[in-house]
Design a protein around this nucleic acid. Structure first.
Lengths: 142, 142
DNA sequence: TATTGTTATACTCTATAACTATA
DNA sequence: TATAGTTATAGAGTATAACAATA
């Protein structure tokens, strides 16, 4: 099956989707020793970068709603990676990584980094740098 | 919520996921006049580019299995966009766009192209070209 | 009134396994 | 034996709507 034709070759959304599906599958594989999905590790990373954040904020950052964010936090709490601490606003939870969560996340991050590198090795070093920079620019210029 | 920290900023998989989720939401919006999802339009594009392909091949190209590909084809056939024609191997279906499918897909493709451009406008023309080239290179160098 | 977390429920997408008919 | 399509079923992941507690 080819992707010949100007539509497919030059469709940003389509190429992005195919690449992301492949990257997700590779990440899932790389994370299999930890028995956790890439999406849940993303949540851990977000909490690490934004200690004390609320579940609603976490959901916004991950593009899911409050109810879905809650399920993710339930899971991470069940694994002992995240704690719900009390916050200034008693309605909200302040999310924090546990010591175990921090340690495990470090190992997961190393596994994902190796996985990323295997993909980026298809490009030259300067191309890889440019790609990451452009993707990040697209995201933050929103 | 920020994505500060070396892990998130430099994680290819994570940045890719966030960008793809955003692009998919924009594509869904752009396709709302057609009442169809981006994934199903991708299937139409694939069939257009590979006329006579089988459902299994379509599934492989879209990274889903035979059963899932069948559901997509069922939907597209129900909309009158795709036909299951007989093939040399009577076990297999040869997928073809209908005239209506071709006409509608052209309009959908224009809508998606506009949507892509709005995203790519955040970059310079040369950056946009480089980005598409690098993403495509990553995909095909697999 | 608006917002946070929560709960219950439903929907979408995908996978698995088994069946049939052909190769 | 292996493969294409099909079918039924189950599992993730997500969304919606409603509720209690608090701002």
């Amino acid at each position: 099956m080819t992707t010949r034709g100007i539509e497919l070759e030059q469709s940003l959304g389509f190429q992005l989707k195919l690449l992301q599906v492949e990257a997700d599958a590779r990440a899932r594989e790389a994370l299999s020793p930890f028995d956790i999905t890439p999406a849940r590790v993303s949540a851990l990373m977000m909490i690490k970068s934004n200690p004390g954040c609320t579940q609603t904020a976490l959901g916004d950052a991950l593009s899911v709603n409050r109810a879905s964010a809650m399920k993710i936090v339930n899971y991470l709490e069940g694994r002992g990676f995240v704690e719900r601490q009390t916050s200034a606003d008693p309605r909200a939870n302040a999310l924090q990584l546990t010591d175990s969560g921090r340690t495990e996340l470090d190992a997961m991050t190393r596994a994902l980094h190796t996985c990323d590198q295997e993909t980026l090795d298809r490009l030259s070093a300067s191309e890889a740098e440019i790609l990451l920079r452009l993707i990040h620019k697209l995201r933050t210029a929103a």
